[in-house]
Amino acid sequence: MKKTKEKAGLIGIWFILPSFLGFLVLFLIPYLIGIKLSFQNSSLDPTLVGFRNYILLFQNDAFQLAVKNTLFFMGIAIPIILVISFLLALILYEIPTPGFVKLFIILPMFIPSGTVAGFFNDLFGNGVDNLLNSDKAMWVLIVLFIWRNTGYNLILYLAGLLRIDKSIIESSEIDGVNYWQKVQHIYMPLCTPTTVFVTVLSIINSFKVFKDIYILQGPYPNPRIYLLQHFMTNKFQSLQYTELTSAAYVFSIGVLVVVYLLYLVDRNYAKKVGERR
């Protein structure tokens, strides 16, 4: 038994190897080398300055503001979009709807940022600046994010629901469970891997909402919607690479915590499903 397991392990390495080599060369090695840059005096002056860049970063008002806004934005927008897209996927899964419905909901992700900006400008006229400069700006951002990305998550949830073995659903119907119990005990738990993936994806997509805002308001928007992406893009454009990389590593550590939590959720799921089989 042990021997076959080891053999399978070696085969696994062959299957992962092509992607891992690319990952190593393009991302991992340069990423690790970049750590040194974050301890340097500047990108041209390699004198090591210890944690100075990190300390300056945490004292930076713009950075603090960006972190606060980004966390607020993600904390509200991501749970909302998860619920909306799961419910929509359930409805489309259960009720036959015209073919255009899915296409229409997905359309917002196809259109370029310029179109969004053009539509916004025509819709609000000169009011667009008033709106984005008001204290409701964050909510505009959240609505914009949900509108643009529901389709993305919807596709994944639909694929996730379709993957559930029909025989499980049928046998539960024979047992006479009601619809809500079915959602709670079959659809939701069996969609856990999809939910983990959709959460990761929503985090990535929440970074992209920045593009639409950037084209409307440029590098220094209303401070209420100044995000980490603004901070990092501005550092990039002013060639302040040491600041950029130290911000990037702080960001990575935050992300690592999230990834680890999701990994635990995912592993917990694997255990449960493993037990059932």
Partner: peptide
């Protein structure tokens, strides 16, 4: 699965989550 497959998985998820501003310079 293979020895270290969970570590690879976590690294792979991590790299997707980093916005392009972070991976651009590397």
């Amino acid at each position: 699965r293979f020895p270290g497959s969970d570590v690879v998985l976590i690294m792979y998820i991590l790299i997707i989550l980093l916005p392009y501003q972070v991976t651009l310079v590397p």
